[in-house]
Nucleic acid binder design. Structure first.
Lengths: 345, 345
DNA sequence: TATTAGCACTCAACTCTTTTGAGTGCTAAT
DNA sequence: ATTAGCACTCAAAAGAGTTGAGTGCTAATA
């Protein structure tokens, strides 16, 4: 059987309708829209065909049809009309996103929030992770009798407190050595050998006790290794409760648990290695728990390099065209951000 | 009518029972426990009295009784038995909380998480906010052609990127002046006058263009003013869905919305200015939305000074004794943390 | 005088049955 | 090829009946 134009139009109409109503769509409803000028009986025949071809499902004999995963997939690939985001909405987004930003991870968080606000689905966003995090400066600041704060400036700032007997003057000397050796290197260029080289200098020329410096340098190495670890944020999880498919509290709770497990979530979103906006629909999602959901993701870049992911999780009958348009827009806007800012708390 | 010992025992038994069952408690259930050796008829008479006195409520004629807010209040103040947390659980907590901590806000986050894990209610925790944040060091690091990262080291590290035409050498000089004037001052000691004094030095001795330095110093002042702003984290919000009082998805959604509004939440938790663990029960809570919930809060301190809040939000029939004990324990453990660490990302 | 056994009464919640209506598939007419 | 017409299906809503936990009151009892 062939999927001719009329069938496509009917399928499109059914999915469009189902996306807003969340109720099985009957032949009469499609017929009454009158865009095709066909009677319900004709629609009925076509719907039976579409079901046979796997695009539609009938929950029970006397019900209307709902789209199958295959139906959604076809819709997303070929049927869905392009959603055009209004100029004012775009300007609003730009204002919200770029206005008074001084910290990159805050901006990213805000982007996630805005994606959630625009789509009203749950949003997931990762902070930038670049293989090329270049070290700009390292500092050791005594903060108490026996502890020193290690500060590593890259595109962002990371810090941690180290317990050590290093004196104030020693901190300054060690910091000088660290800067001399490490500045302008990327995190992956710094092997443990490099750190040992620093150890030798410190023990030799500076005459610092090996035990003391080894301890400190271990933390330095560890911190540098962790530089590229990203965070993941979930926004608007509550929207899940808004959709009738999650009226069942237990089902909703399962999803909440899933969203709370950040590691799992990172893994999920990392594996969608996409170019442009992509959707995985229902059973296309690996986690069992998402088999009734769709996930739409996009990479965002900074400086032209893909460094993070933005994703939307919602019911399979989500408003794909709007979500696609929103993610596309927001990822582009994030890319523009790097001009203004780059930072971290 | 007098609230004699027997009435107290009965009230206690009813509330204890209701806390676990979430179902109206009948006279027979209490009688059968047989701790008092009274028949259901006698219990019934006492229950009628307790209702008249305002401690109990009968949802409808043929139902058992549930505690009123007044009943809970009396229970919390006078009836509740002290919950004793096991030694292993305490050790477990200490291990989890103090192990490998290098960042203070992470530790706080973990404390919130652990409170949620111990109680299985939703937990709210604020990051430390001290009026006495002492500036340890300030740095200006060029990160791009036209931007400089401002780093302020206190007990934690804050940073932001500033667009400026300041050169690398100028950064060093300005940083020197900033350190000379601001080091060891607390945030509230630094008025705008102090900043202007720095401006004069920079323009005068260093000969930097006023326009350029004013821009930078504005950011410095702003950042210092923001030093004491705290964050608030919500953990285990999903647990709300676990309790029958929130079986109604719409009700749950309202609470989720409330928990998402961080500013409101900060305000709520800030106003409970308490010493030790405190509960506000049902209508004692100001926000309309919490009138069916209880909020239990405790201040935690670092260095002996109260700097943050930890709170638990749950149904009115929450396990108060366990929550009280957990919050008490955790707030004490947080106080001990300051020995090991102090940090920020 | 305090307690309790006994009994009629109440009412939410459950079960079972009936009704409703949206929707289908098939057939015969156009 | 399309459509009007009709019998059929079945989930969901509405209604009717049943159950049972729980009460309040009264009269008997310790």
């Amino acid at each position: 059987m062939e999927l001719n134009d009329r069938k496509k139009l009917i399928l499109q109409a059914i999915i469009d309708e189902y996306i807003v109503s969340a109720e099985p769509v009957g032949s009469r409803a499609i017929s009454k829209k009158n865009e095709l000028g066909l009677s319900s009986a004709t629609i009925r025949n076509e719907m039976a065909d579409l079901e046979e071809m796997g695009y539609l499902i009938q929950p029970h004999t006397s019900a209307g049809r709902i789209p199958s995963d295959v139906g959604y997939r076809f819709y997303v690939n070929s049927l869905m009309h392009r959603y055009k985001i209004g100029v004012e909405a775009i300007e609003e987004l730009q204002r919200e996103l770029a206005g008074r930003i001084t910290r990159l991870d805050r901006a990213i968080l805000r982007a996630g929030y805005l994606a959630a606000a625009m789509t009203d689905y749950t949003t997931v966003i990762t902070t930038p992770v670049g293989e090329k995090t270049e070290i700009k400066k390292i500092d050791l600041v005594p903060v108490a009798e026996d502890s020193v704060m290690l500060i590593i400036v890259t595109r962002t700032v990371k810090s941690r407190v180290i317990k050590t007997t290093l004196t104030g003057d020693e901190c300054i000397s060690v910091a000088q050595v660290l800067n001399a050796v490490l500045t302008n290197k990327t995190a992956d260029e710094i092997s443990y050998d490099v750190i040992q080289e620093i150890e030798n200098i410190c023990c030799g020329k500076l005459g610092i006790e090996p035990k003391v410096i080894i301890n400190v340098l271990n933390f330095v190495y560890e911190s540098i290794s962790e530089l590229d670890d990203g965070e993941i944020y979930v926004e608007n999880a509550k929207s899940i409760l808004k959709y009738p498919e999650y009226r069942d509290v237990d089902k909703a709770r399962e999803i909440f648990s899933f969203l709370e497990d950040k590691n799992n979530l990172k893994k999920l979103i990392a594996q969608t290695d996409n170019d442009g906006v992509r959707a995985t629909i229902g059973t296309e999602n690996e986690p069992e728990i998402l088999k009734d959901c769709s996930l739409v993701t996009v990479n965002y870049s900074l400086d032209g390099k893909a460094v993070g992911k933005l994703g939307v999780i919602g019911p399979k009958r989500m408003n794909y065209s709007q979500v696609f348009a929103s993610l596309d827009l927001i990822s582009n806007e994030i890319d523009k951000l790097i001009g203004y800012i780059s930072n971290d708390e």
